[in-house]
Computed example of a mutant assay.
Amino acid sequence: MNLSDFLKGKGTAGWAVTTGALVLFVGMTNIASAKAKCPDVPDPVVSLEFGSRYKADSKTRSDIDAESDAEVTSVLKSIDRFIQGLTRQIGKAQAEDDQKKQLIMSSCVLNAIHAWAKADALSDMRTANAKLAVPSRIGGIAIAYAETRSMVPGMEAEKQAIETWLLARAKATMDFFDNDATKGASRNNLRAWASLGVGQIGILSKQTELVDWSIDSNRTMVTGSAADGSIPLEMRRKKYALHYQLHALTPLVTSIAMICDAGYGNGQADLERLKIIAGFSLNGVRNPKIVEAIAGEAQTVEPGLKANTESLAWLEPYASLTGEKDVNAALLEIRPLLNSKLGGDVTRIYGNRHIDCETRTIR
């Protein structure tokens, strides 16, 4: 049995790996009596059809319909569980000192993603709201794959299938946002999440068309901010304004850092303007009344960095881009920062790094 055959695993889902008294070949290393069991993975979700979380007459998309909100969350739950499972497994693999165990754990991640790719998951989005919600999940899967791809030798057929599937999903995302998304959705947090996923897939596939789309999207988000650093479309969300400001900044900052790290430069994104957006957001978290004064309602976000770590994972890539001393000091108090759609342990990925935005990749 060769390594590729072993990593394909056994079982009806195509991703579970169970071995006993097997020999793995990693370079010239002979690994005997290896045994591992991949964690359960949700069945691939191919089709989605659901409406909005918000009341039909909510022009600012700030009045949640409780029943619809619960339905949307339920429908997306299995996809989110899938991504969370991937990032947990990646975290365990990268924390594992035993390279044999690390290899097996990482192969579980690739096999899980391949199962979804083979099923052409997330390919049949039947409503506009499904098309808006899925790009952030595709991005989360793409980032998980990017973290794992180089950790497992071989499996070339599976990797090719995954990348072909991701590329199709990225192109569908671009087509929707360029042609069918509403004017608001094409410029708010949803576009930022789409940009993150498309950019990561562009980097993986070396498709500059995708990277350029992401760069243009990021530039639009940054230049569309107000002079004080608020994002006008998110400030319309009344009591959820600060929540959505942070929700937009999460993929925006990460996307800019990721593209810079890959050598494509910042695409003329105004990093000084980004600092203003980040400063406004952090001040708003410390004192939500700053945002209340703009949005006209008390904010749902509780004051204080420690109370909002789930919304502040973007601080790690931000600090790696800017090196701001006060941000680095604040990070010491709230690490580790986690977000499954950004790869899981964001502190592990970006913490204490310096990312420059010099263009190094030949186009």
Rank of each mutant, 00 (worst) to 15 (best):
T208V: 11
T208M: 08
T208G: 01
E209K: 11
E209R: 07
L210E: 05
V211C: 01
V211M: 03
V211K: 05
V211Y: 05
D212R: 14
D212F: 13
D212E: 12
D212L: 08
W213N: 01
W213G: 01
W213S: 01
W213H: 02
S214T: 06
S214R: 04
S214Q: 00
I215A: 03
D216R: 13
D216N: 12
D216L: 10
S217P: 00
N218I: 00
T220P: 00
T220G: 02
T220A: 12
T220S: 07
T220E: 03
M221Y: 06
V222D: 03
V222Q: 01
V222I: 15
V222R: 06
T223F: 07
T223H: 08
G224I: 07
G224Y: 01
G224V: 06
G224R: 06
G224H: 05
G224T: 05
S225E: 07
S225V: 09
A226W: 07
A226G: 06
A226T: 07
A226S: 09
A227D: 14
A227I: 15
A227F: 13
D228H: 14
D228L: 13
D228C: 11
D228N: 15
G229V: 10
G229H: 11
S230T: 14
S230F: 13
S230E: 04
S230K: 10
I231L: 14
I231Y: 02
L233N: 05
L233Q: 07
L233A: 04
L233W: 03
L233Y: 07
E234N: 02
M235P: 00
M235D: 05
R237W: 00
R237K: 09
K238H: 10
K239Q: 11
K239E: 14
K239W: 04
K239M: 11
Y240H: 05
Y240T: 00
Y240W: 08
A241V: 02
A241Q: 01
L242H: 09
L242I: 08
H243M: 11
Y244F: 04
Y244L: 02
Q245E: 10
Q245G: 02
L246E: 03
H247V: 11
A248E: 09
A248Q: 12
A248M: 10
L249P: 01
L249I: 14
T250E: 13
T250V: 15
P251C: 10
P251A: 14
L252C: 06
L252I: 11
L252R: 04
V253S: 12
T254Q: 14
T254A: 14
S255A: 15
S255Y: 13
I256K: 12
A257G: 09
I259L: 14
I259Y: 13
C260T: 12
C260D: 03
C260I: 08
A262V: 12
G263P: 03
G263D: 03
G263Q: 08
Y264P: 09
Y264E: 12
